[in-house]
Write a protein that binds this DNA or RNA. Structure first.
Length: 514
RNA sequence: GGUGAGGUAGCCAAGUGGUUAGGCAACGGUUUGCAAAACCGUUAUACGCGGGUUCGAAUCCCGUCCUCACCUCCA
């Protein structure tokens, strides 16, 4: 295993802990994936992104990683929604699973190595529940011929250690649903028995389906084993979901150490200072963002705040009733900027025929130093509990230096500078790529990105490239005739379309802004 | 009530004892027919409030106010 100075904030100990991989030759990361009863919103995007950054960083540092992100495709909410739709529950969840996969893949999140589904792990779940019953940690309750299984919370001494809750305090809020038969209000369902006509799978206790929580214990055990390295999820999962996972897994394997070595929880996406949530109705789906903005802009936006802090997602209604996302637009312009910078640097670097240069004049040495230090600085930022805002600041500095170099070359006709700058540009371009790659940014060719965003922006405004080109041609004619008043009037029209006009010695180009 | 997170310049956001983080906006400049983009400069000796520790505090300690979240499904 490689050396690392990575430190992660562990929710269990509530402290920054040095990352120490378990000695199995493979780092196990488990991300609590979505319950697929509806399309995913921006909060889900954030929850998928945090482990993606961790996994990318670990891999870049040389660790073999097994990344598991589950799909909860069996759940009461799925059952309810499917009934409303008059749809088969697994058909609904399969549909939503595909949408989720598309959404997070477009976000630039590496696909998990294993994406286990509850419906395909019923056997593991039944086995784990049986084990808990054998150990006296769970019990079967029968009512009207239907048998369910509950976890006996008081039998697990460590209950509450993750969420810092005491059993006595929990009891106040706990309650028993009308149809529940558990012995203690704190107990939770491992297996929900149902009638033969209901939605379920056979089990030693009769037909039924798993309760929420048990699937993650069973599937992580199956794919990563007990005591794996990192478990991630949103902060709202700390209680009761993750607390219950600990109770289940450690209750089933006593004496085998902690269920998980490090717990990582990401903060919420807020709308008007409130958590974005289905129940509040204030959510914006990932695909709603993609309708207006590039997926990479959403990624950049989410990375601009440390994963544990809250991030404010703004929406703004324009006079024409269109809804825009100002924060995402700002992020998209930054992504534009990075791609443009990369394209500029590569254009300059193309004429590099010098090979490696050991001695650079002072005017250029600083750029080489910055290029050399970029990756170490980025690694240090990510080592510090995945500090992506600092990582983005390193990227910003590299990009700024790259543009500065390109500007310098455009203006000065210094022979030495012209001769050596392509080499320096290639160094900066490489640094920019290396550094953005670690965050999963700039993963396409600049030209591809530009084409994709320009097409989207044209479509959003109901414009065509031909219409813009016509205006540009009219303006070029006016300029050639030195009719600057007319040329400027046309430019005002173009600006109203959000088109940015760029006159160069070789002609006029344009782009549509985000 | 319990538990946790957070309050940093016009806005966003890093920073946990001592050198300008970074970004956005605005304004000034380089450039340009004029612009835009890019770059430079200014806005910025900012850290919720009140005490304390220290040569020195956004950072540590005590108190206090405010916001949000979890305690019921939630990423």
């Amino acid at each position: 295993m490689p050396e690392t100075s990575l430190k992660l904030f562990d929710s269990l100990t509530a402290q920054l802990q040095p990352f120490l991989a378990r000695p199995t030759g493979e780092v196990g990361v488990y991300c609590c994936g979505p319950t697929v009863y509806d399309v995913a919103h921006v909060g889900h995007a954030r929850a998928a992104l945090a482990p993606d950054i961790l996994v990318r960083h670990l891999r870049a540092e040389g660790y073999p990683v097994k990344y598991v992100r589950n799909i909860t495709d069996v759940d009461d909410k799925i059952l309810k929604r499917a009934a409303e739709n008059q749809e088969d529950p697994l058909a609904l969840s399969a549909r939503m699973t595909v949408l989720y996969q598309q959404d997070v893949h477009a976000l630039g999140c590496a696909p998990p190595d294993v994406e286990p589904k509850v419906s395909e792990h019923i056997g593991d779940i039944v086995q784990l529940i049986s084990r808990l019953i054998e150990r006296g940690a769970a019990y079967v309750v029968e009512e009207q011929g239907v048998r369910s299984v509950y976890y006996s919370v008081r039998a697990f001494p460590g209950y509450g250690k993750l969420s810092k809750r005491k059993i006595e305090e929990l009891q106040v809020g706990a309650r028993i649903e009308a149809n529940e038969t558990k012995r203690d209000p704190l107990d939770f369902a491992l297996w929900k028995g149902c009638a033969e006509t209901g939605w379920g799978w056979p089990s030693p206790w009769g037909k039924g389906r798993p309760g929420w929580h048990i699937e993650c214990s069973a599937m992580s055990e199956r794919h990563l084993g007990h005591g794996f390295d990192v478990h991630t999820g949103g902060m709202d999962l700390i209680f009761p979901h993750h607390e219950n996972e600990i109770a289940q897994s450690e209750g089933a394997f006593p004496g085998e150490g902690p269920f998980v070595r490090t717990w990582i929880h990401n903060g919420f996406v807020n709308v008007d200072k409130e958590k974005m949530a289905k129940s509040l109705g204030n959510f914006v789906t990932i695909r709603q963002v993609y309708e207006r903005n590039d997926p990479e802009a959403l990624r950049y936006f989410l990375l601009s705040v440390h994963y544990r802090g809250p991030i404010a997602f703004e929406t703004e209604k324009l006079p024409d009733e269109r809804v825009i996302f100002p924060g995402i637009i700002e992020a998209e312009r930054r992504v534009d900027y990075l791609y443009q910078t990369l394209a500029r640097l590569r254009a300059l670097a193309e004429s590099d025929k010098t090979g490696t240069i050991s001695t650079l004049p002072p005017s250029l040495a600083g750029y080489a130093t910055l290029a050399n230090e970029a990756v170490p600085r980025l690694r240090a930022a990510l080592d510090d509990d995945l500090n992506t805002p600092v990582a983005l600041s390193v990227i910003a500095e590299v990009a700024k230096a790259g543009n500065e170099l390109c500007d310098l070359v455009q203006r000065k006709k210094d022979t030495l500078l012209l001769k050596l700058s392509p080499y320096v540009a290639s160094r900066l371009a490489k640094a920019l790529v290396d550094v953005t790659e670690r965050l999963g940014l700039l993963q396409t060719m600049p030209a591809t990105y530009t084409q994709r965003t320009q097409l989207q922006r044209l479509a959003l405004r109901g414009l065509t490239a031909a219409a813009v080109d016509q205006k540009i041609a009219d303006r070029a004619a006016a300029r050639a005739a030195k009719d600057f008043a007319r040329a400027d009037a046309i430019r005002v029209e173009l600006t109203a379309w959000n088109v940015e006009v760029f006159d160069t010695p070789t002609g006029t180009s344009w782009r549509l802004l985000a």
